Simulated scan of single mutants.
Amino acid sequence: MLIETERLRLRPWTERDIGPFAVANSDPEVRRYYYPALLTLNETAEMIADCDRHLVDNGFGFVAVERRHDGALVGGLGLSRTGDDIPGGPHIEIGWILARPFWRQGYALEAASACLAYGWTTLKLSEVIGYTSAINAPSRRLMERLGMRSEPAEDFEDTTVPEGNALRPHVLYRIRRPA
């Protein structure tokens, strides 16, 4: 899976991505809406290996996002299959995590828009979902800018997050392939 935009390249992970992505995954601000909150270098390497397996098995996945002009790793973004733990699943979801130095530059919108276009045209997907903790206002705004919509009846509790944790209530967003 290789997608290029004006400023970005979405591509399979490489060994050189582990360190920079681990830095992002150990940043409390970057990980404030994720559980578990912080990931170690080894946990990040395991995450990347899982993403690589998904890409090989499915032809799409959560991939590295790099800036084209200098090769800097911006973060990770992509499509993946969910399990039955998401209401109405399994689904194809879009997700992202960007390192803090790359926030507020339009990279997430640019990459996610290109990823959805790839899903519609290349993968012929009919629908993509996104989900996040209810308190994750930045990701919710991005989903809405992408044209994704939520239905309160589809909100759910993420059972991987302990009861009482503010990250447990989740919101589900959907977008259908444009006609």
Rank of each mutant, 00 (worst) to 15 (best):
E154R: 14
I86A: 01
A22W: 02
A179Q: 08
H69S: 14
G75P: 11
E15D: 13
R16Y: 06
E157K: 10
A49I: 00
S113T: 15
A45W: 04
L10K: 09
T160P: 00
A64W: 03
V171F: 00
L98D: 01
R140F: 00
E15L: 05
T132E: 09
L142D: 05
W120S: 06
L2M: 14
R9I: 15
M143F: 13
I92N: 02
L10S: 09
T5F: 13
V128M: 02
V23Q: 09
P20G: 11
T44C: 10
E127V: 01
L79P: 01
G106D: 07
D85K: 04
A64P: 08
E151W: 05
R104S: 13
T121W: 09
L123P: 03
R81Y: 04
R149W: 01
W103N: 05
R104A: 12
V128T: 12
M1F: 06
N58W: 09
D85G: 02
P162F: 11
D52H: 08
R100Y: 03
G164S: 04
F21R: 07
F156G: 01
R81W: 11
A134V: 14
R100P: 00
E29W: 10
E151L: 09
G88H: 04
R81P: 00
Y107P: 05
S139D: 02
L123V: 04
G76D: 09
M1H: 12
F62K: 05
T132I: 03
S113C: 02
G78H: 01
R11G: 08
A114P: 11
L172K: 15
D85Y: 08
S113M: 04
S126F: 00
P12E: 08
I97Q: 13
N58K: 14
A112D: 12
E127L: 00
A166W: 03
A117P: 00
G164F: 03
E15T: 12
L146H: 13
W13T: 01
A99H: 15
V56C: 04
R141E: 11
S150R: 13
D57K: 13
R32S: 02
L123Q: 08
G147L: 11
P101H: 10
W120M: 06
A179H: 09
A49T: 13
R31P: 00
R100Q: 12
A108R: 06
A64Q: 06
R141Y: 07
N165A: 11
W120N: 06
G147V: 11
R53V: 07
W96E: 03
E6M: 03
G164N: 06
P169C: 06
